[in-house]
Amino acid sequence: MLFGKAKILRSHGWQYIPDLKNVTLTEEFRGFPLLSDTDTKDDIERAAAICPTGAISTSPLTLDMGKCLFCGECARCAPRNIRFTNNYRLAATRREDLIVEVGQTEPKFDREAVRPEIAKYFGKALQLREVSAGGDASIEMELGATGNVNFDFGRYGVGFTASPRHADGLVLTGPISRNMAEALDICYHAIAEPKIVVVCGSEAISGGLYAESPAVERSFITKYKVDLWLPGAPTHPLCFIDGITRLREKR
């Protein structure tokens, strides 16, 4: 029996990523999009027409990562206009910074918009309460993965807690189903001040495919101050780790 366990341990080896700040994802990963203008607008208009969440505007050309589900279909319609890179550092501190413009090479992370007390109170330890309000389970699993043997975000004092009373902030996933809106609100108020709000995943940011559904109720997003926006469908664990890390850095 001990022999069996030794075998598992030997095969398991070391799994954690030593430096979470220097990871390169596979080329196939669709992260930050690069936009270019072309003389003809035919391709990009086709791409805008097929985009299921209306993330693309054509004049001027912009792509809203808060709506984008990173399916990559637009880059196939208009390869000269849109190219997805494997840059997963998509976090933004202001909603409007998620709208990518032509020629932009890096996502915008506005440090000025970060409240100074965040680094002061949560720089050493940060416990979060996740609330899924219509999330499709993939994003919840990715948030769970941030603490697993591979990413081990816990080494920086960041984790998820069961009770909102023990939490320093709320992580919202899902387009906010109407049936969950009240529970989400109660959970928010159960967290003591000062607290942060992280909106995780394009569906939570904009409603995504369900933005117009009568079954969602999105007033939470406008009612409370959001500190961090994390696009993705689902948000990659590294995007979450990178965003939270930068949010907590001292200026």
Binding site: I50, P52, T53, L69, C71, E73, S132, A133, G134, G135, G174, P175, S177, R178, N179, M180, A183, L209, Y210, E212, S213, P214, A215, V216
Partner: peptide
């Protein structure tokens, strides 16, 4: 149950964009 209800079946027929249906 029901807390997760987002209206999948009605969103499927909101329009005939099949890429959108695929993503739903």
């Amino acid at each position: 149950l029901g807390y997760q209800h987002r209206g999948v079946e009605s969103e499927m027929v909101r329009n005939q964009n099949r890429l959108r249906q695929t993503l739903i």
